[in-house]
Design a protein around this nucleic acid. Structure first.
Lengths: 200, 200
DNA sequence: GTCTATAAGAGGATAGAC
DNA sequence: GTCTATCCTCTTATAGAC
């Protein structure tokens, strides 16, 4: 992989627009300001993107796909070890991954909690899609745990899934809100608590 | 106290503006739309408020003051019982209070996490003020606990304060994000965990 | 690919009548 | 107190030259 020093125009638009959409929000951001920072005229942006919405969702989709890819890699690592360990490694791996680039997760949280009216329908559709893909990856491991009797059968897979996701998300929100950094020991402890509550 | 059936114009403006500022956000809300719902012309709003910012902070301040008042009442109830119990009652009382009107807390969370540029300075100033008032109320009880050796001296009061506040806030965010409703038993359990972590 | 120029509309706010 | 009329600015987006 070649290290790119000079970003091309499209990359510069995306990286600057990301910052604005994160910090100012969709409505408060405007094409002119973004283009001023990129050092092009506003009309040039429409060579790359058909609209402000189009630009926004290029960024949004990239982040979601990256998240999915990483989760998938974690889920498929150590294929031959216990599914309980693999689930724990996914949890700990995702939390570490989030903490390395928390602003991207803050971006997603912003548009999930407070979707602007103009793009709320599309956001909702995409949220459902990506959330479903995420569920499938996690559910696969949960089902493996169930089959191996590592999870007692007191809960249905979907209930366990909800507990897992809620805990992962609340941990992420804490990192966003308080800048929490977890040591490996804290991560281990945190995972044990979650695993236990999936088994209660 | 008299039950008002017919809200006057000012009250109607505030209640409709609150909803818009909560759901759409400050920038996406506009005076014309708010006034259309109130059934007055936009110019009439400026009889009551000098600007959109002025309107916003009337609403913002009201919510913050209400929160403080309630916390203060809880802190001063049962003056003669143990400060540990009083702190627990404050925690449980605030969580119950939040869950009865969670949208107001969601409003505050929105502007804390994602302050619009135009009002970010004022928001930050006010946040510091109200947060400080809140701290004083909580710290008072924590100091009483310290004096009575109910909290071991392993932590400084300010550290205990941070733990208390973080836990209360994370619980609130969970309620906002997942609509969690806690039973009294769950509240008791939750408080015990917090108290223990203030003592570790 | 990037520019200049501009259309078309929305938004905050004010003046002054009633 | 509430209205009509209006000002001025900002915004997305397009047409067409280079």
């Amino acid at each position: 992989m070649v290290l790119k020093i000079n970003k091309n125009t499209e990359e510069r638009i995306q990286s600057i627009a990301f910052k604005d959409f994160l910090e100012k929000g969709y409505e408060e951001s405007n094409v002119r300001d973004i283009c001023k920072k990129v050092d092009i005229k506003a009309s040039s942006l429409y060579y790359y993107y058909t609209s402000k919405i189009d630009l926004f969702f290029h960024i949004y989709d990239n982040i979601c796909k990256e998240n999915l890819r990483y989760r998938n890699d974690l889920a498929n690592a150590n294929n031959y070890s216990s599914p309980m360990l693999r689930l724990g490694d996914m949890y700990k791996g995702m939390i570490r991954y989030y903490s390395n680039d928390i602003v991207k997760q803050k971006f997603l949280l912003r548009y999930q909690l407070f979707p602007p009216e103009e793009i709320s329908y599309l956001l909702h559709e995409k949220y459902r899609f990506y959330s479903n893909e995420e569920n499938n990856i996690i559910l696969h491991l949960i089902n493996l745990c169930m089959k191996s009797d590592l999870l007692n059968g007191n809960m249905k897979p979907l209930e366990s899934l909800q507990i897992y996701k809620k805990n992962e998300k609340m941990q992420m929100i804490e990192m966003i809100t308080y800048g929490t950094k977890m040591s490996n020991a804290e991560l281990d402890l945190s995972w044990i608590k979650i695993w236990n509550s999936m088994n209660s």
